[in-house]
Structure formats: C-alpha cells, structure tokens
C-alpha cells in the first residue's frame, strides 16, 4: 500500500509544460491570501448566526431597533430560561437525538453496502436502480406526505418514532448511497487486491484499506444525514401527534402563534439546538477527516 499506487491511478493526465517560475515562493503568498479569503467568507457566512445568537441575549426592546445593537446593552438569560422552561423542551431534545442517531446509524450501514454494490459490481438492473434513486429525490416531499402517512398508518407506525426514522431513511438513503459511491469509486481496486494478496481476509481488507479511505465520505454522509434529520419539520409534525414524542424542530414551531412570534426565546432555543451539532462536528471533523485518513493512507 504505497502512495504510489494511489497516485498513479488518480492522475490520468499530467500537464507537460516546462517548469516555470519558482513555485515555492508563490505558494506561500497564496497561502496567506487564501487564509484571509477563507476568513472573510466565514465571517460573512457566520453573520446571520451571530445575529441569531446575540439576539438570544438581548432584552426585548433591543431585539428589533432602528439602529442595530451589535451587542446587547446588558446580557440577559431570560430568553434561555423561557426556552428551556417551556414544556417539552427536554423531551424534544431527547427525541431528536434518538431519531437522528438511529437514522444516521442505519443509513450509513445500508448506504455503504449499496454504494459498494454500485461502485464495484456490474449487474443487471444497475442502471434501473440508479434511475430509481434519482427519481425518488425528484419527487417533492409535500406531494408524498399524505400517501406516506396512510401507508405508515396501515402499518401502525404513525405517532411512533420508528415510523419517523423509516420515513427519514427513504429521503436520505438515495443521496447517501450515491455520495458514498463517489468515494468508493475513487479507491483503486488494486489496493484492496494487494491487501488480499498480503493475506488479509475480505473484512480485514475492508477495514484496513477501504474504510479509512472512505471515512471522509462516511463523515460527510453522516453529517448530511444527521442535519437533514435534525432539521426536518413536515414529516415529524404530520407523523407524530403526542406532544411527548415530538422532535425539537416541531417544538421550535410552537414559538409562533397567532399572538406573534416569541423571537427572543426562539433565537435562544435555536442557539441551544445548534450548539451540540456544531461541537460534535467540529470534533468529528478534526479527528476523522484530518487524523484518521492522513494517517492510514500514508502509514
């Protein structure tokens, strides 16, 4: 498993121009520029999030004002208290975590198997399957909601969290399979074969070769799945009736009534809701994407 194998297969063509200017110096300068550019973009991207979070700490009259308050004149936790004290906050969090982890776990396993099939095998019906998962993505969820409900209703799965997980799986699986396929395709078969020849069995070959190289894809797919499931509103709302079983997103909608929207608590609640996802991903990103892959490809 030398990097050479990987390099050869991954570079179809190499531009054959004569060596020009000192590449090294230019690269350093570009590094600074791209770092600054990235910081600037991040700042723009982050601004609405900042606005949400800072609003959560503002006393009421400052939430909307003619001259923007970039920071609250005094930090208040009232909005957070109001959010957390609202009925069904904790059950909402727990249900969302449950639904998200079940969806992610099942989706990853099922999608990975499907991705290997699509990437590594030629078989009758392959095109048909590809066509199917693409079409499934194209149908607007709003158009399917009633028949999905009726079907789950017949199966006794309405007002049940597993029913929600099942529905989510159908919406994330097509993408997950297709995405992972892209990653598996990029891992040269020769690598796996080399491992088999070295005396690994199939599982070992999978674990030592394929898995590490596909890990970034798994992480990206997991994040995609997790966030889709975490943010989904319509299916969760329609399928679940019992307030104790509702998810976080549905709970968030309760801040808007005919009396207006409780902006302060809503922003506080969303900040709280986004926090675990951000922290989890920041950790996952560092460990898996940079650490694990870099290590195993080179080692």
């Amino acid at each position: 498993m030398s990097t050479g194998t990987l390099a050869r297969t991954a570079t179809p063509t190499r531009p054959g121009k004569p060596p020009a200017a000192p590449a090294r110096r230019r690269r350093g300068g570009r590094g600074l520029a791209s770092n600054l550019a990235l910081l600037a973009i991040s700042a723009v991207m982050f601004f609405p999030i900042y606005w949400m979070a800072v609003t959560a700490f503002k006393p009421g009259p400052e939430i909307l004002s003619y001259t923007p308050h970039w920071l609250p004149s005094r930090f208040t936790l009232d909005n957070f208290t109001a959010a957390v004290d609202r009925p069904f906050f904790w059950s909402g969090v727990a249900n969302s975590l449950l639904v998200v982890s079940a969806t992610v776990l099942i989706a990853l396993v099922v999608a990975f198997l499907g991705a290997v099939a699509l990437a590594r095998f030629e078989f009758t019906g392959r095109q048909l399957f590809v066509a199917m998962i693409l079409v499934v993505q194209m149908v607007p969820a709003g158009a399917l909601i009633i028949p999905i409900y009726l079907m789950l209703n017949r199966a006794g799965q309405t007002d049940q969290l597993p029913g929600v997980v099942l529905a989510y799986l159908t919406f994330v699986l097509p993408f997950a399979i297709w995405m992972l396929r892209g990653f598996v395709v990029n891992v040269p078969v020769e690598l796996e074969e080399a491992a088999l020849i070295d005396g690994c069995n199939r599982l070992q070959a999978f674990r030592r070769v394929l898995f590490p190289l596909v890990a970034p894809g798994l992480v990206a797919t997991a994040v995609y799945t997790a966030i889709q499931a975490w943010n989904e509103f319509l299916l969760a709302y329609v399928l679940i009736s019992t307030p104790e079983k509702q998810t976080m997103t549905v709970w968030l909608a309760s801040f808007t009534t005919t009396r207006g929207t409780e902006y302060g608590p809503l922003m506080a609640a969303s900040t709280l809701a986004a926090l675990p996802v951000v922290i989890f991903f920041a950790l996952a990103q560092r460990r898996v994407v940079s650490g694990l892959t870099a290590g195993s490809v080179k080692g």
Binding site: N35, M45, M52, W230, N231, F233, A273, A274, V278, A282
Partner: peptide
C-alpha cells in the same frame, strides 16, 4: 482557519429552516 471555517459552515447548516 480551517476549523473556524468549518464551525461557521456547520453552524449555518445546523440552523433549522424556520429560524
């Protein structure tokens, strides 16, 4: 810088549509 960017991106991504 990459971590900063990642946090910003994920924070955006994790914001429910309604909010």
């Amino acid at each position: 810088v990459r971590l900063t960017a990642t946090v910003a991106l994920v924070a955006v991504w994790a914001t429910p549509g309604l909010v």
